[in-house]
């Protein structure tokens, strides 16, 4: 126990980095995932094929491999070397966007086709149909799976520890080595993860109730 309080500053630093990774990647993944989902349901076949291929590829690739690719392979193709943080953020975003897209797509599919047809029939464009009619109705069924994706993202940030970033797991490793493998280190690390993931779960419940509507 003392070990945790003695090392709070280090744990906080790791926590900050983990939070940064999660928030930056979360925002980017949501934006990219929304774009992918819109492409997937668009009437333009090349777009929907691209989106489908992207999602299948990324969903079926280990995250570590995406990190390897971003760190070691992409620079060889002229992709500029960003800071470690941003390379990790991009890897996490590209990977998570595939899951965001799938969550959004199943939400979109849960809204009956009649809704989209009625929207198109009154002259709304594809974008308006999506933003005015489909997404507002999909939101409710999409929030819980989307939060799950973000919780998984938070946990996935730990992969960055293997790539030189001293986030929570990185801090845990250092403290563990310095303190002869004291298990309390990992209890401390776990608590900090829960500090992110439990409120996220609670938020899911609140938002879900807020946007509820009668069908």
């Amino acid at each position: 126990m003392d070990l945790i309080s003695e090392n709070l500053p280090a744990l906080f630093a790791g926590f900050r980095l983990t939070l940064q990774l999660a928030v930056y990647s979360g925002v980017l993944a949501l934006a990219l995932g929304l774009l992918l989902a819109a492409m997937r349901v668009s009437p333009l076949r090349p777009l929907s094929l691209f989106s489908a291929a992207y999602v299948e590829l990324l969903r079926n690739t280990p995250l570590t491999l995406v990190f390897f690719f971003m760190y070691f392979v992409a620079p060889q193709f002229g992709v500029p070397a960003f800071s470690f943080l941003w390379v990790a953020v991009i890897a996490l975003s590209l990977y998570t966007a595939a899951f965001v897209s799938e969550a959004l797509r199943s939400g979109i599919n849960s809204v009956g086709v009649g809704q989209a047809e009625a929207a198109r029939a009154i002259g709304l464009t594809f974008g308006q149909t999506l933003s005015q009619v489909i997404l507002p109705q999909a939101v409710r069924s999409v929030i819980p799976p989307l939060i799950n994706v973000l919780i998984a993202l938070t946990k996935n940030t730990s992969v960055a520890a293997g790539f030189g970033l001293v986030e929570l797991i990185g801090v845990g490793r250092r403290l563990s080595t310095a303190n002869a493998g004291d298990p309390w280190v990992w209890v401390g690390v776990a608590v900090f993860y829960l500090l992110i993931t439990i409120p996220a779960g609670l938020l899911a419940g609140v938002v879900e109730r807020k946007v509820a509507f009668a069908r």
Binding site: E117, A118, I122, G123, V133, R215
Partner: peptide, 22 residues
């Protein structure tokens, strides 16, 4: 857009109403 404009000129009433539920 051209198709959307055309559809605005053609009203459609469906068997299952399809009112926007939200």
């Amino acid at each position: 857009k051209a198709l959307a404009r055309l559809r605005a000129d053609v009203g459609m009433v469906f068997q299952s109403f399809n009112l926007f539920a939200h």
